[in-house]
């Protein structure tokens, strides 16, 4: 019984964890290029999930609905950078924070106008009942979540380390002025970072909706927990985000299982505060490099 519970909580924790990690990666992509923390990151996840529900409702098969949702959310990311962030190029950090918060409110309000306040569910990606492993029931969708996330991470790694655009984006992250001088169009890279980040967020939204439903107001919490993973993993560090996401997901799942489901949301946030206060460079970052970053 004990072992069964343990396994069950571990699987659901890891499923949650990779979602946090994907949100965290979304934060990292934008942060790396712009040093902006996008407070609307959680809203990309919500919009992605709800759009998939919409497309499935139109009769799209799941893979097409997935693709369409990611595309539309990417377009939103494009619009956000092109028409809002670009205007605020010279704004103070405070203004930028306010601006991305304002965008999150606009996304959230729009989602509520379009979909109302009810939670929506998406059919699982594959048919069939839960897989029984040592007495624990594992939803096939959990495996889909892990698989799709792995694909996203691999695709991003290839993009950043092999493609010209990816390398150019990393160069901007390193030193925007130097990047500009060697002829990298920094503005386009910023645009690309918002598009990519929105896409990753949307993908996370689509794969999680069959398990945990999606509702217009989930963005803030998803964003905060995703940020917790990003901060704990070291802001800007992709693999750190994965590990930290897993830690947070497990912590949340075990708290819900063994302590109190009401306080499960608080766990990630308390860990976030501890990370920010005592190890702002993250578990896997170097404190020396962190001194050079603008927090």
């Amino acid at each position: 019984m004990l072992a069964t519970d343990l396994l069950q909580y571990t699987v659901s924790g890891l499923t949650l964890g990779v979602i946090f990690a994907l949100v965290a990666i979304g934060f990292n992509i934008i942060y790396n290029v712009t040093e902006i923390i996008n407070f609307a990151q959680g809203e990309f996840v919500v919009v992605g999930g709800l759009l998939a529900v919409f497309f499935v409702g139109l009769g799209f098969p799941i893979p097409m609905a997935f693709g369409a949702s990611v595309l539309v959310t990417a377009a939103l990311g494009f619009g956000m950078e092109r028409f809002v962030i670009r205007r605020a190029r010279n704004a103070s950090i405070l203004s930028l924070i306010i601006i991305t918060i304002a965008m999150s409110m606009i996304f959230k309000g729009s989602a509520m106008s379009l979909w109302g306040k009810d939670p929506y569910v998406l059919p699982p990606f594959s048919e069939g009942g839960p897989i029984m492993v040592a007495g624990a029931a594992i939803q096939p969708q959990a495996l889909w979540v892990l698989a799709v996330s792995a694909l996203v991470v691999i695709a991003l790694s290839i993009f950043f380390h092999r493609s010209v655009y990816g390398k150019a984006m990393l160069a901007c992250a390193d030193n925007a002025n130097a990047a500009r001088m060697v002829g990298i169009p920094v503005r386009q890279m910023v645009l690309l970072s918002f598009v990519l980040s929105a896409s990753v967020g949307a993908a996370a939204g689509v794969i999680i909706t069959p398990i945990s439903l999606m509702q217009y107001d989930r963005g803030a919490m998803l964003g905060l927990k995703g940020f917790a993973a990003a901060a704990l993993g070291g802001l800007g560090n992709f693999y750190g985000a994965l590990a930290a996401g897993a830690i947070l997901g497990l912590a949340e799942s075990f708290t819900a299982g063994y302590i109190s489901s009401g306080y499960k949301d608080a766990v990630s946030l308390v860990l976030l505060l501890f990370a920010l206060f005592f190890k702002p460079e993250g578990l896997f970052g170097s404190s020396e490099a962190a001194k050079l970053k603008k927090f």
Partner: peptide, 9 residues
């Protein structure tokens, strides 16, 4: 903390 981190905290 400054800026974004303070906001998040």
């Amino acid at each position: 903390l400054k800026g974004h981190y303070l906001a998040m905290a």
